[in-house]
């Protein structure tokens, strides 16, 4: 080989080159593994055991699927599953519906819209626990500012004790979530709306389509893959609802707003039944696993588009 004037780049031996990516990944993978894989496996093992912290410090004997059988014959567990489902449906529908409305209203280039878009992210940055307190304060049936507004506009709502009524308590809980998510979803959808070519919509307009027809026949079909991504994303985070349950309703009235996460928390943390709480938390892991798979499929489709 003829020696070139430029010194050749340092060649590393084959195994070192192959090991390079893993060497870079090792610290992060170690941290993620230690803080996610370890607890998941540990919770799975504990879910097959009997373990009450108030009886023994060390985990007790293996009891097979007993904790899971207990969950599926426990009315209060079913209640929490039902509450979580209701909450998820309500908050997904409201967040995505309102988010889409906001996106369509702001999908133009006026200064007012630009100003509003810049502020849309703010509610999402408020700690969820604080959102709970904030809405609880504003909907206080005697003194809350939103309660007063509602009572002025709709006098027959005067008697409603928002957090004392099972239906409205769940709605308020959903509202704390919608307040942060609807504007965020609007921002995501505005990204999608921006990528729809204006020629397509202009063509529909020239063909005499009303704004209503234009939306359902042109915009909506083009936006649908992205909407699906957003729906699953919101569903995943709704199933995980915990913070606002603690700060807004404490699970009440009765058990009307006790989500699955809150149920697992009260079994493990309040009643110190670690075995049962671990089984419940693994049921939540499985539910979220299914939703996550659906989300990833929807995302792959959106990317393929």
């Amino acid at each position: 080989m003829v020696a070139s004037t430029v010194p050749p780049p340092r060649r590393r031996s084959g195994w070192r080159r192959r090991a390079a990516p893993y060497a870079h990944l090792a610290p992060a993978l170690l941290a993620i593994g230690l803080t996610t894989v370890y607890p998941l496996v540990s919770a799975l093992i504990t879910s097959f055991r009997h373990w009450r912290l108030n009886e023994t410090r060390e985990p007790g004997e293996f009891v097979g699927l007993e904790q899971y059988e207990r969950a599926f014959t426990d009315g209060t567990f079913y209640n929490s599953a039902w509450v979580t489902l209701e909450f998820t449906v309500i908050s997904v529908v409201l967040s995505v519906g309102l988010g889409l409305g906001i996106a369509l209203i702001l999908n133009n280039r006026t200064r007012l819209s630009a100003f509003t878009k810049a502020l849309l992210i703010l509610p999402f940055a408020v700690a969820p626990a604080l959102k709970g307190f904030s809405w609880r304060f504003m909907l206080n049936p005697d003194t809350g500012v939103y309660d007063k507004m509602v009572d002025t506009v709709l006098p027959f709502f005067d008697d409603i004790n928002w957090l004392g009524d099972p239906f409205w308590a769940l709605m308020v809980l959903a509202l704390t979530e919608v307040w942060g998510w609807a504007p965020l979803i609007a921002l995501m959808l505005l990204g999608g709306l921006g990528s729809i070519s204006p020629e397509v919509r202009e063509a529909a307009k020239l063909d005499g389509a009303s704004p209503w027809q234009e939306f359902w026949r042109v915009t909506f079909p083009l936006l649908r893959p992205l909407l699906l991504v957003v729906v699953f994303l919101k569903a995943v985070f709704s199933v995980k609802i915990f913070d606002q349950v603690v700060t807004t309703t404490g699970g009440g009235p009765g058990r009307a707003t006790e989500s699955m996460n809150f149920f697992a928390y009260s079994q493990g943390f309040t009643f110190l039944d670690i075995g049962y709480a671990s089984a419940v938390s693994w049921v939540i892991v499985l539910v979220l696993g299914v939703l996550a798979a659906l989300y990833l499929i929807a995302m792959a489709r959106q990317e393929a588009k």
Binding site: S42, T46, F242, N261, V285
Partner: peptide, 28 residues
């Protein structure tokens, strides 16, 4: 590298783990 895609997917998937399933084992 081998495992590129699956590791990336695993990293995304960790975002869906419910907090209680992490907090309980760490509590004990």
């Amino acid at each position: 590298f081998p495992g590129h895609r699956s590791m990336l997917l695993a990293i995304v998937a960790t975002q869906f783990i419910p907090g209680v399933a992490i907090a309980l084992p760490f509590l004990t």
